[in-house]
């Protein structure tokens, strides 16, 4: 579905990714893990054309999408949930879901908003509350919910568990698996490597802008992963 070939990318002349290759098949969860500064988020930002791609190409269903604008990417079925400030704090939950997505007619949009409410009932309960009053986990649900309104084929998640309590993280990862089971393809960048590897069909380990390791769930036992995440080199 998505093919990244020899991607070099970065910001303002600073190269972060030094030639990476990633393949994503339909209905897969692909996890991208690695130490801080390895360039995980840059991969997602390159797909969504927020980082500067200097060479290489990104194909989506065999179409080259490397230089497409963000709204064109959204039309093609790629949605992105950024990290950090992910919602419009002073807009209501409902407004946060309605906003953007101008290519969708109102009836379809309402239908999809109801779908999001079914998926995350708490958002329906709080639909008239301002977004900043939601808890961290609910904020994440809202951001993912907004991305789903576009009915994406590929969902890009940038560190969704950041700042969530372990319990909420567990819930979030369950939701991500559920979305995959509903037919979505997901690329997730995560700090919580263990959890990410557990839900992912395949995992890529990124180090210093290069792919250092790739594999399925058994990657957890790999020496490199143990080194990085169980108090090794880093």
């Amino acid at each position: 579905m998505l093919e990244i070939k020899n991607l070099h990318s970065g910001y303002n002349g600073l190269e972060i990714l030094e030639g990476i290759d990633i393949n994503i098949n339909e209905k897969e969860i692909i996890a991208l893990i690695g130490p801080n500064g390895a360039g995980k988020s840059t991969v997602i930002k390159s797909i969504f054309n927020i980082a500067n791609v200097t060479s290489g190409e990104i194909l989506f269903n065999e179409k080259n999408i490397t230089k497409l604008k963000t709204y064109e990417l959204m039309k093609l079925g790629i949605s992105y949930v950024s990290q950090g400030r992910i919602n419009f704090n002073n807009l209501s939950v409902k407004e946060n879901l309605e906003i953007g997505n101008d290519n969708i007619d109102k009836a379809t949009k309402d239908q999809r908003i109801n779908y999001v409410y079914d998926l995350f009932p708490v958002l329906k309960e709080k639909k008239n509350k301002l977004a900043f009053t939601l808890s961290g986990g609910q904020q994440q649900m809202l951001a993912i919910g907004r991305a789903l309104i576009q009915k994406p084929k590929l969902l890009l998640l940038d560190e969704p568990s950041l700042g969530l309590s372990p319990l909420l993280q567990k819930e979030l990862f369950k939701t991500i698996e559920k979305l995959r089971d509903l037919g979505l393809t997901i690329l997730i960048v995560e700090q919580n490597a263990k959890k990410a590897i557990q839900i992912a069909d395949r995992t890529y380990l990124l180090e210093d802008g290069k792919i250092a390791l790739t594999g399925g769930k058994d990657i957890l036992k790999h020496k490199k992963i143990k080194n990085i995440y169980l108090g090794g080199r880093y």
Binding site: I50, L91, I99
Partner: peptide, 19 residues
């Protein structure tokens, strides 16, 4: 009006979602 409030709230996110 909603788009204005959104841009005022979070310009980067507004541009990400295509406003």
């Amino acid at each position: 009006g909603r788009n204005m409030r959104a841009v005022s709230d979070n310009k980067e996110l507004a541009s990400i979602i295509g406003i």
